[in-house]
Nucleic acid binder design. Structure first.
Length: 488
RNA sequence: GGCGCUAUCGUCUAACGGUUAGGACGGAGCCCUCUCAAGGCUUAAAUACGGGUUCGAUUCCCGUUAGCGCUACCA
């Protein structure tokens, strides 16, 4: 049974690329009846923050993604150091006493890549031990076996056979001069200890993997399987970064923007993976069912956003698709916080349940309830242009007669879809106007604008009293309006 | 600079070496219709470039170009 892990370092917020990595790991685990491990890679004490950790939990909670085991690397430093000692004892690592500043200097001049310092690598063990015992600080470096080995190789499940000349791998650090393990050391030591079977992570680690293979070998253990994921990039081709691209890189932006977790997970899955059968809208169960690492592709995927429109159109479409098919009760429930944020009074679940069927084909994000359902909650309609009341091929006078008639009809009509339809259509034919010419003034009178949900349902939800009141107001506005009558 | 990875419509992607290069989003148009949506139909739009291999290359190989990644005592 596979054991996979998602290992974020708490140095930011939950990045959408990280979220996708979690999802792919999770999908792989669920598909194969495996174990999903969340491991916080916080070996760099200076850069970790609690808020970042909170944001990771927040994001995962929203996405409703759970894990089976949880660890923090900072609780396991002893194990990592022990592993490093083991590697040193086996002669696969050496102490580098070069002061930090010197090294930086050395790197800056010449464009030849820094690989190692022969004096340090070849230092006799006795001298090394003596200087260490004397308390001289050092960084522990991996002794890359360049003399007796030409290359390091591994097979990536996504990218295929990988090989790199040992001559091109530098003697990387295992332990910092303060004794703390580096990412490479901690990560591999933990992968061994946690019996990780598959490492599924971003492609930015593909070249690091050669180092990791070396560490696994030095630790005397079989390397896990590796599957690297293509990166998510911005439309400008750059890696997504908060500094450069703003809040679009944080999953909470999508949550606050009114996305359903399901849509967002679905969207992320489509970036860099395909079920190969043209399926696009998938439930979580279907995703689990369909997901395989073989379906992951190799080229970076662009998240399509602009400054004006921070959300990828495909994500928006997927969300609209999900909103339309969500059971009304669920939709109403999810709408509550957004309705409240919009300042709607009386927007409780019951009320929203009445409105949901009228707007669900008209909102693409939950947040859009703010602009599509406002008139259901307004005590008084915000002012609108009287001319809006004028129907197609009509004038203010026609609007007036239509509204008078409507007012009359609505006083006694049965407030149901069919009742209203019959009554209002009859009214239109009485006035010898087209149905649309009758409906449009009413719509504007009760909604305050031309673009709105279907009229009869809207009237039912609004109720007789409100409808009548708003029509009366519209009539009043018409009276105040300058006598037009010059439309011919 | 060195090393590695990648390259199909604007975007996400499909295509055992043989397809009129498919689908989706977005765009355009039409239909439906009480407005707006939703839905239906139609349409424009791609194999980076150059060489091979092959009867035949989107597909395999080489080169060029471009993009990305790694090259830290970050992860």
């Amino acid at each position: 049974m596979p054991r996979v892990r998602f290992a974020p370092s708490p140095t930011g917020y939950l990045h959408i690329g990280s979220a996708r990595t979690f999802i792919f790991n999770w999908l792989y685990a669920r598909h194969n009846n495996g174990t999903m491990i969340l491991r916080i890679d916080d070996t760099d004490i200076e850069r970790n923050t609690q808020t970042s950790l909170d944001s990771i939990f927040d994001g995962l909670k929203w996405l409703d993604l759970a894990w089976d085991e949880f660890y923090r690397q900072s609780d396991r430093l002893d194990l990592h150091k022990q592993a490093a000692e083991e590697i040193l004892a086996r002669g696969a690592a050496y102490r580098d006493f070069t002061p930090m500043s010197t090294e930086a200097e050395d790197k800056s001049h010449g464009d030849a890549p820094w690989l190692f310092f022969p004096e340090m690598r070849n230092m006799p063990r006795e001298e090394s031990d003596r200087r260490a015992a004397a308390g001289e600080p050092f960084v522990l470096r991996f002794r890359v076996p360049r003399e007796n080995r030409a290359s390091v190789e591994f097979k990536d499940i996504v990218y295929g056979e990988q090989s790199k000349a040992t001559a091109d791998i530098e003697d990387f650090a295992l332990l910092r001069s303060n004794g703390q393990p580096t990412y490479h050391m901690a990560s591999c030591a933990d992968d061994v200890a946690m019996k990780i079977s598959h490492v599924i992570r971003g492609q930015d680690h593909l070249t690091n993997t050669f180092k990791h293979v070396l560490i696994f070998e030095a630790l005397g253990s079989e390397p896990p399987h590796f599957a690297h994921l293509p990166l998510l990039i911005a439309p400008d081709g750059a890696k997504l970064s908060k500094r450069k691209h703003g809040p679009v890189v944080s999953v909470t932006t999508y949550r606050d923007g009114g996305f359903l977790a399901q849509s967002y997970v679905n969207f992320l899955c489509l970036l860099g993976w395909s079920p190969k059968n043209d399926r696009e809208v998938m439930t979580r169960e279907e995703l689990v069912e369909l997901f395989t690492l073989e379906g992951v592709n190799r080229s970076n995927a662009t998240v399509n956003f602009t400054e004006e429109d921070p959300f990828d159109p495909k994500a928006v479409w997927l969300n609209a698709e999900n909103i339309r098919t969500l059971p009304l009760e669920d939709l109403a429930k999810q709408l509550v916080p957004f309705a409240q944020a919009a300042g709607f009074v009386g927007a409780d679940e019951a009320r929203l349940l009445q409105i949901a069927p009228l707007i669900r084909e008209r909102i693409r994000t939950l947040r859009e309830i703010a602009t599509t359902a406002d008139f259901f909650f307004a005590e008084e309609l915000p002012p609108y242009d009287v001319n809006e009341l004028i129907p197609q091929k009509g004038d203010l006078a026609m609007a007036g007669t239509a509204l008078h008639k409507a007012h009359q009809i609505l006083q006694s009509a049965e407030f149901s879809h069919d009742g209203l339809e019959a009554a209002l259509k009859a009214g239109a034919s009485d006035l010898k106007v087209k149905a649309g010419q009758m409906f449009q003034p009413i719509r504007v009178a009760v909604c305050g604008r031309k673009v709105a949900p279907p009229l009869f349902e809207t009237l039912v939800v609004l109720g007789r009293e409100t409808a009548l009141h708003r029509i009366t107001q519209a009539l009043a506005m018409l009276q105040m309006a300058p006598p037009a009558g010059n439309e011919s």
